[in-house]
């Protein structure tokens, strides 16, 4: 811990951040569940949607972070995501996630070979612009953040063959998250500028549309208790590839915050058609550990 603190104190001095460099730097000072969870691409948010919240339990004087493992069982595919995210002074969030999209026996039918997997790495950056989701209860002002997700996949030749323009892409988003504490209700609206096909797993841009599209994402969560939130999400996606239709993703979820160090989310997700396979709806399970 000591060397780490020393390094951080040097960084703090260099960046001019007047933060107490001690054990206080890592104290989980925010309220339970007010951090959300890590979404599929690694950013703090819901399951599908990045929110304006900075990950981890660090206040504006502290650093928080967490790791996540998520698995989604679909009729023809499985989707896994593992990653880590760090929140700096409730202002900046850095995240990384590795996603694996396993085509199982459908890979054989698609001519890719059984068990063929698409992999994607996502590096995320988020900046809280203004607002505090908990404290701003006397106004309509949400917490607002901007973010970018730098995505790259490893399947260049196949992505090219299905019509994708690129195996790399950058998503940019603006997220507004509002907690209506009086109603025990949290709402998020996020707009994303993206070229990604199926979150980027099937590349970026396509033969139908090669450019960026504006997409809408939204989440609603109702707090049943301090530890449990239930809700639903929607995320529209581009439809860039002519070989396979792509639609809107939805989910209904329950998140259980056991402690500030451990939470789990279970959801039923509807991802619609993926790579010509209809009705890819299934169970989403995520485990998260952090501070």
């Amino acid at each position: 811990m000591r060397p780490l603190l020393k390094i951080l104190s040097v960084i703090a001095c260099l960046t001019g951040i007047d933060a107490p460099v001690s054990a206080q730097l890592f104290e989980s000072g925010r309220l339970l569940a007010t951090t959300g969870v890590n979404q599929l691409e690694g950013a703090g948010g819901g399951g599908l949607v990045p929110w304006a919240l900075i990950t981890g339990y660090g206040t504006r004087d502290a650093i928080g972070g967490n790791v996540h493992g998520t698995y989604v069982w679909l009729p023809n595919f499985t989707l896994g995501s593992a990653g880590a995210a760090i929140g700096l002074y409730d202002r900046v969030e850095l995240s990384y996630a590795h996603e694996t999209f396993d085509t199982r026996t459908t890979g054989g039918k698609l001519g890719l070979g059984n068990g063929y997997a698409f992999n994607e790495d996502v590096v995320g950056l988020k900046l809280r612009v203004f607002g505090n989701v908990v404290y701003d209860q006397d106004s309509w002002m949400p917490q607002v953040a901007v973010g970018a997700q730098f995505k790259s996949t490893d399947n260049h030749a196949i992505l090219h063959a299905i019509g994708a323009k690129s195996s790399k892409g950058v998503d940019m988003y603006l997220a507004a998250t509002k907690l209506f504490l009086e109603e025990s209700l949290l709402l998020d609206a996020t707009v994303r500028l993206t070229k990604a096909n199926q979150f980027g797993l099937l590349g970026f841009g396509g033969d139908r549309n090669g450019g960026y599209s504006f997409e809408f994402e939204g989440s609603a969560a109702y707090l049943i208790s301090r530890q449990i939130a239930i809700g639903a999400e929607v995320r529209t996606k581009p439809d860039n590839l002519s070989f396979a239709k792509e639609g809107t993703a939805v989910d209904v979820f329950a998140a259980y915050f056991l402690t500030k160090n451990l939470s789990t989310t279970v959801a039923y997700v509807g991802l619609g058609d993926i790579a010509r396979q209809k009705g890819q709806n299934g169970v989403y399970v995520s485990l998260q550990a952090g501070f």
């Binding site: 104290e27 000072g29 925010r30 309220l31 206040t59 502290a62 025990s184």
Partner: peptide
Amino acid sequence: RQVDFNALAEDLQSAMDVSGIPFRTQNR
């Protein structure tokens, strides 16, 4: 600091639990 404010909020939450105040009322 914010952490002190939030610590007090957490203490108040547990006091509301002990006092039998329902969760939704606590949030109000």
